[in-house]
Amino acid sequence: MTVTQAAPPLATAPETLEAPARRKRSTNSRKWLEIALFAGPALIVFVAFVILPVALAAVYSLYNWNGLGPLDRFIGIANYQRALSDPLFLQAIGNNITIVVASILVQGPLAIAVALLLNRRLRGRGIIRALIFVPYVLAEVIAGLSWKLLLSPRGGVNALLEAVGLEHLTRPWLADPDIALWVMFGILTWKYLGFAILLMLAGLQGVPQELHEAAAIDGANWWQTQWRITLPLLGPTIRIWIFLSMIGSLQLFDMVWVTTKGGPVGATNTMAVYMIQYGQGQYGYGSAIAVILFVISLAVALVYQRFAMRRDLAGAVTSGVR
C-alpha cells in the first residue's frame, strides 16, 4: 500500500552510450552484469519451470498423445473442438464463473462489514480476529475432509438438524446435484473469508485517522464517514482482493477434489477438476484443457489489470493518500 518509491531506471537508452566515452561504458556493462547476476537465476528458473511448461502444453494440445509413445499423431485443434463441445466441460466453465461472481458479490461485502466491525475497539478483538482467520490457516485437505464428513447423509450437520427438530431440512448436502454447487460455495466462503477480512483489515490501517476526525468536525455521521472516506480509500485493497479471488475461483481444484471430485454428475465440476479426470491417459486432451484454463485466466487477469487496477498499479491513489 505505502511502498510507492519509483524504481530507478534500469538501463539508459543506447544513444547516450556513445558520447561520454569509456568510463560510462564500463559503468554500463557493470550494471548489465549486475542485472544478469541478480535477475539471471530467477529468470532461468521462471523460464524453465513456468514459460517452458506452458509452451509445451500448447504443443501437446495439438496432438493425440497418451503420454507414453512419441508425439506423432498431430490432430490440429480437434482437442479444443472436443472440449468446447463437451457439455460437461461447458458446465465446468459455468461453475467456475458462478463461483467467481458469487465470491465477489457475497464474500466481498461480508468481509468489508466484518473488517469494519473488527477495526473498532471492542473486547476480545484479538481472539475474534484469530478465530476468523483459523479456517484459512487450516490445510485444504483437512478442511475438505471435515466438511465431507459433516455434510454426508449420516453426518454431523444432519444430526444437528434432527436434534433441534428441523428434520425437514436434512438432506444429502453434497449428493444432491441441485444444491451441491451452493454447498460447495458455502464451504469456500467459510474457508477464504478470513483471508479477505485480513486483507481488508490491513487496508483499513492505511486510512488516516485525521480524515475521520475532519469528517466528524464537518458533521458527518458514521455511515457517511464509511461511505465517503473509508470505502473509497479501501478501494485499492478491494480491487486487489477481487483480483486474487477471481484467479483463485477460476483455478479452483483442491477443495472440490477432496470433497466431491466434481460430482454429483458434474454439479461441482471445475475446469481444473475436469482436466484431471479427463486428462488421464490422454495427455493431449488434458493439455488442451490446461491451455483453455490458462487463456481464460490470463484474459481475465489482463483485462482486469488494464481497466480496474490501472490506477492502483500506477500508484495514483496511494500517492494521493501519502
Binding site: K148, L149, R154, G155, G263
Partner: peptide, 10 residues
C-alpha cells in the same frame, strides 16, 4: 452419488 468407496464411515 457423493459416497466414496473406501474412506470413512460414510
Amino acid at each position: 452419488l457423493a459416497t466414496p468407496a473406501q474412506t470413512g464411515a460414510d
